[in-house]
Computed example of a mutant assay.
Amino acid sequence: MNVLSEWTALACKELGIDPAAVDRDLILELTKEVAHGVARPAAPLTAYLLGLAQGSGTAPEDAVERITMLARNWARATTETLTDD
């Protein structure tokens, strides 16, 4: 077992989460997109926000898709937000 798998298993156990419910690769891909498209410190914050969204009932796949698109279009999104009246 590699360190990431071991950490995931132990963190899930500590938090009472079924490890089978965690799509590690999906989360890592999301945080990679955010780190490269927005800023590195935004990646862990995004993972936390994803958890909050899932806790409030948003399907993780939907949240990941929406946030990935936002990260990929970050320059345009910030320009539009800053120029809205």
Rank of each mutant, 00 (worst) to 15 (best):
L30T: 01
M69W: 11
P19E: 09
A53D: 05
E29M: 12
Y48W: 13
A47I: 06
L52I: 12
K32W: 10
P41R: 08
D62A: 14
E33P: 01
I27C: 07
A35D: 11
T31Y: 04
A21L: 11
I27F: 01
L30A: 04
L4W: 08
N2T: 13
W74L: 02
D62Y: 15
I17A: 07
A53C: 12
A59G: 09
D23Q: 14
K13W: 07
L30C: 06
L10N: 08
L4A: 10
C12V: 01
W7R: 06
R40P: 07
G57N: 10
T46D: 02
R72V: 04
V22Q: 09
S56R: 15
N73R: 12
L15Q: 10
A75G: 08
Y48E: 07
E61S: 15
T46E: 02
A11R: 03
A35G: 15
E33A: 15
T68S: 15
A9Q: 11
A9F: 06
D23G: 12
I27A: 07
T58I: 13
D18C: 04
S5Y: 05
P41S: 07
N2W: 01
L45H: 09
A35M: 12
A71Q: 00
L49Y: 10
E6P: 00
A20K: 14
R66A: 14
T31K: 06
A21H: 11
R72W: 05
R66P: 01
L10C: 13
R40C: 11
N2F: 04
L28K: 14
L30N: 02
I27T: 06
E14G: 05
A59I: 11
A11C: 06
C12T: 03
T8A: 06
N73K: 07
D23I: 12
V38C: 06
A71E: 01
A9N: 12
L15F: 09
L10I: 05
V3S: 08
T31V: 13
L52T: 09
E65K: 15
P19W: 06
V22E: 03
V38N: 00
L15V: 01
Y48M: 07
R40Q: 13
L15D: 04
T46H: 00
T8H: 02
T68I: 06
D18I: 05
M69E: 13
S5V: 08
Q54F: 11
E6C: 03
L45V: 15
D62R: 13
N2I: 04
D62F: 14
H36W: 12
I67E: 01
I27V: 14
G16E: 10
T46V: 04
Q54D: 08
V38E: 03
T58R: 08
E33G: 05
S5L: 09
A11T: 13
W74H: 13
G37A: 06
A63K: 06
P44C: 11
C12H: 02
V64E: 00
L30D: 05
I17W: 03
P19F: 03
T68Y: 00
S56Y: 14
G57E: 10
G16N: 02
C12N: 02
G16A: 04
I27P: 01
A71P: 01
R24F: 08
G55L: 01
T46Q: 00
A43P: 01
A11K: 04
D23C: 13
N73Q: 08
G55K: 09
R66W: 06
